[in-house]
Design a protein around this nucleic acid. Structure first.
Lengths: 226, 226
DNA sequence: TCGCGCCCGTTACACTTTGATACATGCGTC
DNA sequence: GACGCATGTATCAAAGTGTAACGGGCGCGA
């Protein structure tokens, strides 16, 4: 069944990128490349930079005393990650696929006079971040694992979906454990939910975690709980 | 049992207040009084003001298509609520106890040049907000209802606890349904969890939802899952 | 003042979902 | 070919939910 699902869409994940506007200021941004698995920063690190993702995907996590891990968010191209509180980072951040990121100095956060445009941009990013975090709550609070999973796939569809004829292609950069820790489930339950979505022909999935959304409407209905 | 628990601490909830610095700018803040149940704003409202809570508690919620409600956050004295995305409010906001709030014009969010001090303050608020939202995820992701509930009461302890001799007094301004919708549980489960905490002599609770934290350490251990 | 209905909190019971555990499969690497 | 890693599947136990019922407090109107 899987072998019949070999869709060759050409572009690779890393090619989904966002144009970073070139700016002329005292605090010109610096581009960095990082590999999958590398950390951008750790929780409680003194914060020197915030990072805008140009390509690739990062994972923002919090570690708990009992050893459990909560995935706070995924950083997709265009997102700004690493906004600090009290001068320190509030999460772990590591790449789950090769990334290019643009680093901006944190000092600019509290110096609006120095570079108003940059400050405006950072404020915009913080406000967007708040909205994304609020969206995430709706997934965690939702009751059924199938609904949570559908809502998550809907998010991916909207954030990193690539048109492919009548359907949409979504390359999953994260594994089942990441999804589980994002949704407050176990990897097994995520696996069951995805299997159910495949059985219902809502999505198709090959061995390389490349997904095709077959029934966009059904996915959104499940995500909405209707 | 309840009648034996009549502790008279004198101060009322509304007396927990935060000093709002008087500022001299083009955009002087305006104080408003609102009653319990009144709305400050609705989801998708065009955002004209952000509000800093001076006294009282507000509730930030999102309504879902299936009728369920997610409590995104509670706004305690000192908190800033109503930070918009794309010029619109992203949640409902209503008071759950009589409130005094200080309104600042949203226009200042994207005009750092006009009032740098105000902009710095709003940025700080946004960054704090992000951290609080992240903290909330750890409560939702936690496994057991007892742990979630303990974590929530720990939050209240830290935010609105009032020293009372060797113990700490916490007046719960919200009802069981609010707590349930905040933690992703049902009101019944919250009730059971609180009953368990009372049985274990971790907290005491009277008929007026006034709580005394008897065993601070036990509460935090439960909240940490240890 | 009394009676009434309503809301909230609590408790009990049956049921559903999820978690925990175990094991099989497939893939890549050594 | 052995091994590690990630994923999928199956089974059983545990936890939470849904439903219902009960009691207390409160506001309202007769």
């Amino acid at each position: 069944m899987h072998s019949a699902l070999h869709f060759d869409a050409g572009r690779t994940q890393s090619e989904i990128r966002v144009r970073i506007p070139r700016r002329r200021t005292l605090s010109d941004p610096v581009t960095r490349r990082i590999q999958a698995g590398q950390h951008l920063f750790h929780e409680r690190d003194s914060a020197h930079f915030v990072y805008q993702i140009a390509s690739g995907v990062v994972r923002l996590t919090r570690l708990q005393k009992d050893g459990r891990r909560q995935v706070i968010a995924f950083g997709f191209p265009g997102d700004v990650v690493g906004l600090p509180a009290d001068g320190r980072h509030t999460t772990e951040c590591d790449a789950i696929s090769p990334c290019e990121v643009v680093a901006h100095r944190c000092a600019n956060l509290m110096q609006p006079e120095r570079d108003p445009d940059l400050h405006r941009f950072l404020m915009q990013s913080a406000l967007d971040d708040i909205r994304f975090l609020q969206d995430h709550f709706l997934m965690l609070g939702r009751r059924l694992a199938l609904e949570k999973t559908a809502a998550f796939l809907e998010l991916l569809l909207d954030r990193i979906g690539e048109p492919l004829g009548a359907y949409t292609l979504v390359r999953l950069p994260m594994n089942r454990s990441d999804i589980a820790d994002y949704l407050g489930l176990t990897p097994e339950t995520v696996s069951r939910a995805i299997t159910e979505l495949r059985t219902r022909k809502v999505v198709a999935l090959d061995d390389a975690n490349t997904m095709i959304v077959l029934d966009d409407d059904a996915l959104r209905e499940l995500a909405d709980g209707t």
